[in-house]
Design a protein around this nucleic acid. Structure first.
Length: 352
DNA sequence: TCTGGGGTCCTAGGACCC
DNA sequence: TCTGGGGTCCTAGGACCC
């Protein structure tokens, strides 16, 4: 979907149509500690984009107002609303393909090989786009390719409201001129390593041997070798078993107040435990807490229980979590008494 | 500018076992 | 005296994705 959260908001409220919209963390009078989740295309004209600190987005909006441009509408994230839209879209796609994978709240892979040709697949995708627009009033971008990797990259090319088909024989020609950042799995760190070596495009990325890439980046290097050639045999998987459940929160103000931290920890663990019970698993073995300090240094601490913790043992879970946080509140793990910015709780190694 | 929250996957060192 | 090889599990940290 294009600018999904913002598009759903725009569709849900008549007065929002055509206005610059930013969905993200809470911000009041320019004060807020989070980031932008999604900016619609109108807001992007102001220089606002995803992952930008929301306070900066606010400042950009103020600047724009001084130049007599329209003020930006700031909205909190409303997952319930977006999940509903997401479900509706999944339902529409399922009418056209039996093999649909929901990759995230706003991304879907589906198999159209039954259609026989790319032309026919395109026709189906046009219908899907129309139906989504008709029912949800939002646009999406579609990529059609010989595998998930190529289709995903193709979908990103003509955003928003785009559609691009890349046939097997054209894959390398399509990929070659693209920046290496277009390859899923190459983030800022990996890209910088390649840029330093003068590797900027996927064509450049085709030059090193698999051994050289493996030497540089281990297993990831091997994966990149194949991705740079458009090779991908990842199947469309309808159902993914969840592997962990967690929750984290950033304090409005950095703190070392033990009572405040304890209470928040209990709240997080209560929420996480509830979701664990709802998940249908019967036990989990590992508990992890996260502590982020004011300087952004982030530590984790975890403990694994041979016998696991079951659904009747919420108290044990809470106590183990409090035990894990304890060292961070005194000089043992926090010798400089650095203030804490964020805490988090996660459980993993779940058993049916 | 000042950096969310939900996740997945990988790596590396150390403990431990045979 | 100076030490194997293979495997698994635990812990901590980091990159990445949406």
């Amino acid at each position: 979907m294009d600018a999904f959260f913002a598009s759903v908001e725009e569709a849900a409220t008549p007065g929002f149509s055509g206005k610059p919209i930013v969905v993200g963390s809470e911000i009041i009078n320019g004060i807020g500690r989070g980031v932008v989740s999604t900016a619609n295309y109108k807001a992007r004209e102001y220089g606002i984009h995803s992952a930008m600190p929301i306070s900066f987005a606010w400042r950009l909006s103020e600047e724009a107002k001084k130049q007599c441009k329209e003020g930006v509408i700031f909205l909190p994230v409303d997952f319930e609303l977006y999940n509903k839209a997401s479900d509706n879209i999944l339902y529409i796609i399922k009418k056209y393909s039996d093999d649909v994978e929901q990759a995230s709240i706003d991304e879907f892979y589906f198999d159209l090989s039954f259609s026989g040709t790319f032309k026919k697949a395109e026709a189906i995708c046009r219908k899907i786009k129309e139906e989504i627009y008709k029912k949800e009033k939002i646009t999406c971008s579609v990529g059609i390719g010989p595998n998930k990797l190529v289709s995903k990259i193709a979908a990103g090319i003509n955003k928003p409201n785009g559609m691009l088909s890349v046939m097997e024989k054209d894959v390398q020609r399509f990929l070659n001129p693209l920046d290496i950042r277009e390859l899923p799995g190459i983030g800022p760190k990996t890209a910088e390593i390649f840029y330093q070596k003068g590797i900027r495009t996927i064509e450049d990325l085709n030059k090193p041997s698999i051994e050289e890439l493996k030497e540089m980046l281990g297993k990831q290097g091997e994966k990149i070798y194949y991705k740079a050639r458009g090779i991908d045999d990842d199947p469309i998987t309808e159902y993914h078993e969840i592997k962990s459940i967690g929750e984290q929160t950033t304090f409005n103000q950095n703190t070392l107040n033990a009572v405040l931290i304890y209470d928040k920890m209990k709240e997080l663990s209560g929420n996480v435990f509830k979701r664990f019970i709802e998940s249908g698993f019967s036990k989990f073995k590992t508990v992890t807490i996260t502590v982020r300090f004011a300087d952004f240094e982030t530590k984790t601490s975890s403990k694994t229980f041979k016998e696991g913790i079951d659904i009747n043992n919420e108290k044990k879970f809470e106590i183990e979590i409090l035990k894990l946080i304890l060292p961070f509140l005194d000089k043992r793990s926090n010798p400089k008494s650095k203030l804490i910015r964020l805490i988090g709780v996660r459980l993993e190694k779940m058993v049916k």
